Simulated scan of single mutants.
Amino acid sequence: MQRLATRIVDKPWGRKGIDPRFHVDPKRQVGEIWFEPPADRPLDVMVKYLFTTERLSVQVHPDDIAAHERGHARGKDECWIILDADKDAELGIGTVRDLSPDEVMAAARDGSIVDLIDWRRPRAGDFIYNPAGTIHAIGPGLTVLEIQQAIDLTYRLYDYGRPRKLHPEEAVDVVRAMPHHHALDTHVGEQSRVLVGGPHFGVAWCAGAAPELPLLIRDVQLLPIDAPVGELKPGECALIDSGTARSLTSEGRFVLAWSTETRGS
């Protein structure tokens, strides 16, 4: 087991007084907690926590093909496990109807893109898969565990007047503006199961013990949620080998995330 270093990222939309398990100064306005890969071992999968009090930007990520064309190592599929949700929490994914590229550009310019997002009321335990090309915006009142392809590659369409760069031209070339319906979306419940099996990464929700895992998994990351797993505590993350992953047990719940990509792809 190799613990990964924690990186705390303050954000204007973040939250003060996050769960004590993260051992963060309660005065800090924390938006994200990342786990750094070892210096000598790059990882294809990134796992992080998000803590929100405001709407994040309306954005989209490119897929592998578009990212490669623009000189990036990979695109960005991601998924979310909602760990906690206030009664007024919201999350936007997909659009309320199909939009043409011209409609997306015009709506991004005048801000009406916000009203075209499909805003939902998520609840703790919801699992949502967000494939590259999908318009989305995480809203306030959420604690989210995000698993994604390991790249910081985001095209912002609209950001509520915040002084950050927007990327409408880049976004319009990769966006698929349509209602979001994904076969992997579910509610995790109290049963261990594999939530994602590829093509870029795998994710398992584990209640007490790991489910049966695929044969070919690599760079497995372990994240205890509400009880320790061995010496690893909630709020921490560690790299483990595939054999260890298959035999893990806990008095609580934990998440496993791993790469399914062929090295160099």
Results as ranks from 00 to 15, higher is better:
residue 60 V to M: 00
residue 60 V to G: 02
residue 61 H to C: 13
residue 62 P to W: 02
residue 62 P to T: 11
residue 63 D to W: 06
residue 63 D to R: 06
residue 63 D to I: 10
residue 64 D to L: 10
residue 64 D to N: 13
residue 64 D to K: 06
residue 64 D to E: 09
residue 65 I to Y: 14
residue 65 I to D: 15
residue 65 I to N: 10
residue 65 I to F: 11
residue 67 A to W: 08
residue 67 A to T: 05
residue 67 A to K: 03
residue 67 A to V: 07
residue 67 A to F: 07
residue 67 A to L: 08
residue 68 H to F: 12
residue 69 E to M: 07
residue 70 R to H: 12
residue 71 G to N: 08
residue 73 A to I: 14
residue 75 G to V: 00
residue 75 G to D: 05
residue 76 K to A: 00
residue 76 K to S: 09
residue 77 D to Q: 03
residue 77 D to S: 11
residue 77 D to G: 08
residue 78 E to G: 05
residue 78 E to N: 03
residue 78 E to H: 13
residue 80 W to G: 02
residue 80 W to L: 04
residue 80 W to H: 04
residue 81 I to L: 15
residue 81 I to T: 04
residue 82 I to K: 04
residue 83 L to D: 02
residue 83 L to V: 07
residue 83 L to A: 03
residue 83 L to K: 09
residue 84 D to F: 05
residue 85 A to G: 03
residue 86 D to A: 15
residue 86 D to K: 14
residue 87 K to M: 12
residue 88 D to S: 09
residue 88 D to W: 04
residue 88 D to E: 09
residue 89 A to K: 00
residue 90 E to N: 01
residue 90 E to V: 13
residue 90 E to I: 08
residue 91 L to D: 01
residue 92 G to P: 06
residue 92 G to L: 00
residue 93 I to H: 07
residue 94 G to T: 09
residue 95 T to W: 01
residue 95 T to A: 04
residue 96 V to R: 14
residue 96 V to S: 06
residue 96 V to N: 11
residue 97 R to F: 08
residue 97 R to E: 15
residue 98 D to A: 05
residue 99 L to S: 02
residue 99 L to Y: 07
residue 99 L to F: 07
residue 100 S to L: 09
residue 100 S to R: 10
residue 101 P to E: 15
residue 102 D to L: 08
residue 102 D to S: 10
residue 103 E to W: 11
residue 103 E to M: 12
residue 104 V to R: 06
residue 104 V to Y: 10
residue 104 V to L: 08
residue 106 A to D: 13
residue 106 A to Q: 13
residue 106 A to C: 11
residue 106 A to W: 02
residue 106 A to P: 06
residue 107 A to S: 13
residue 108 A to E: 03
residue 108 A to I: 03
residue 108 A to W: 00
residue 108 A to H: 01
residue 109 R to Y: 09
residue 109 R to M: 10
residue 110 D to G: 11
residue 110 D to K: 14
residue 110 D to S: 03
residue 110 D to F: 14
residue 111 G to K: 11
residue 111 G to L: 11
residue 112 S to G: 10
residue 113 I to D: 02
residue 113 I to S: 01
residue 114 V to M: 04
residue 114 V to F: 14
residue 114 V to L: 14
residue 115 D to L: 05
residue 116 L to G: 00
residue 116 L to A: 05
residue 116 L to Y: 04
residue 117 I to A: 00
residue 117 I to H: 03
residue 117 I to P: 00
residue 118 D to R: 12
residue 119 W to D: 10
residue 119 W to I: 10
residue 119 W to K: 07
residue 119 W to R: 11
residue 120 R to S: 05
residue 122 P to I: 12
residue 122 P to K: 06
residue 122 P to D: 12
residue 122 P to S: 13
residue 122 P to G: 13
residue 123 R to Y: 12
residue 123 R to L: 10
residue 123 R to K: 14
residue 123 R to N: 09
residue 124 A to P: 09
residue 124 A to V: 01
residue 125 G to R: 11
residue 125 G to M: 12
residue 125 G to H: 06
residue 125 G to S: 14
residue 126 D to T: 02
residue 126 D to I: 01
residue 127 F to V: 01
residue 128 I to Q: 01
residue 128 I to S: 03
residue 128 I to E: 00
residue 128 I to F: 01
residue 129 Y to W: 08
residue 129 Y to P: 02
residue 130 N to T: 15
residue 130 N to W: 00
residue 130 N to L: 15
residue 130 N to R: 07
residue 130 N to D: 11
residue 131 P to Y: 08
residue 131 P to D: 06
residue 132 A to Y: 00
residue 132 A to E: 04
residue 132 A to C: 05
residue 133 G to D: 06
residue 133 G to C: 12
residue 133 G to A: 05
